[in-house]
Amino acid sequence: MNRIYLALDFPCWKEAKQFIEWNELKGVPVKVGMELFYREGPAVIERLKDNNHPIFLDLKLHDIPTTVNKAMKNIAKLGVDMVSTHATGGSEMIQAAKEGLLSGLSDGYKTQLMAITVLTSMDKDSLNNELLLPGEVEENVVRFAKLAEQNGADGVVCSPHEAKQIKAACGPSFLSVTPGIRLQLSEKNDQKRIATPAYAREHGADNLVIGRSITKANDPYEAYQQAVKEWKHGIKS
C-alpha cells in the first residue's frame, strides 16, 4: 500500500492537473490543502477521485464546535480518506468534528479525522516564547495527541521526530501523518522539524506528506519513486 501523499500545493487545478499528467503521477495519494481547495472548491476533489487518487484534505479546521461540526458533515460527503483539524481547538471541537464526519457519512465511506499537533514550521523557541507553551516540542506534541485520541480523532499530523512517542502514548493503531519530509539532497525551506522517508518509517510514521522535494525536483517522477524506495526499503540515498 502506497502511504506517500503528494502535496498538491498549486494555486489552481490547471497547474495541479498538468503536474500530475506531465510527471505520470495519476492515481498516487495526494494532499489537497487550503490554497488549492479555496480556489477550486469541492470540484477538485471530484476530479481527483475520478483518477483514483486517495485524498488527504488538509484544511486544518479550527473554530467553535458547532461550526466545525457542520463543516465536517459536508466534508464527509466528499468521500476523502482523511481530513484535518487543529488539536488546539480543544476536546469539544474535536468531538464535534468527529460527530460531524460520522453523521455526514455517504455510502458508508469513512473519513478519518486527523488532528494537527504542532506545525512543522515551529520549534521550541516559537512554542515557548510566542505561544507561551512551556516544555519541549515533543512534550507538547504528545499532549495534543493524547487529547485528540481521547476525543475521537483517528490520528494526528506531527513531524517524524514525534511519531514514536505518539505510538507509545496513544497505542499502535493511532495513526500519524508526517509532513516535513525531505529527500536526502532537498532543501529545508521553511520547515524546521524535517526527516527523510526512511527515518520517518523507522520512527513509527504511518503516512508521509511530501511536497517541494518532489514538486520542485528536476525530475518529479524519479523523485517520487525515490521517496517510495526510501519508505519501503530504508534506502537513505
Rank of each mutant, 00 (worst) to 15 (best):
K216T: 14
A153D: 07
V228C: 09
Y221Q: 14
I4E: 05
A217C: 05
V32F: 01
H233Y: 14
E202M: 08
G155Y: 11
I194G: 03
P29C: 04
L101K: 07
L61Y: 15
L25A: 06
N128L: 08
E230R: 00
A115R: 07
N51Q: 13
R143F: 01
R47F: 11
H161P: 00
P172F: 04
V30T: 02
L131P: 08
L25M: 11
G211T: 02
G41Y: 07
K146T: 14
P65Y: 02
K236W: 00
V177A: 13
G104I: 03
A115Y: 07
E138K: 15
H233C: 08
I194A: 00
L102A: 07
N207W: 14
T88H: 00
L127C: 14
G79M: 12
I20K: 03
P197F: 11
A145V: 11
L25R: 09
E130N: 12
G171P: 13
I194W: 00
M82Q: 04
A205S: 15
L185H: 15
I166D: 09
V209E: 02
G27F: 02
E40T: 12
P160V: 05
L57K: 05
R143E: 13
S84W: 00
Y5A: 12
H62V: 11
M34E: 06
H233L: 12
A168W: 00
L147Q: 13
K164V: 01
K216E: 14
G27W: 03
K98M: 08
S84V: 04
Y109C: 03
A195T: 09
E149P: 00
R182G: 06
T120C: 06
V177K: 07
K110S: 12
N129W: 01
V28F: 09
D154K: 07
Q184K: 15
L132W: 03
G211K: 04
G90S: 11
T178E: 14
W13R: 06
L6F: 11
I166H: 09
C170Q: 09
R3I: 08
P172N: 15
G155P: 11
A145I: 09
A97I: 01
I210R: 05
V156N: 05
Q226Y: 01
M93L: 10
L25Y: 08
S237I: 05
A43E: 15
D9A: 04
A163W: 06
G135A: 08
Q191G: 02
T66D: 12
G100I: 10
L185F: 13
I214M: 10
I94G: 10
G79S: 11
E130F: 08
I45S: 11
V137T: 14
G79Q: 11
K124N: 14
V118D: 03
K232C: 09
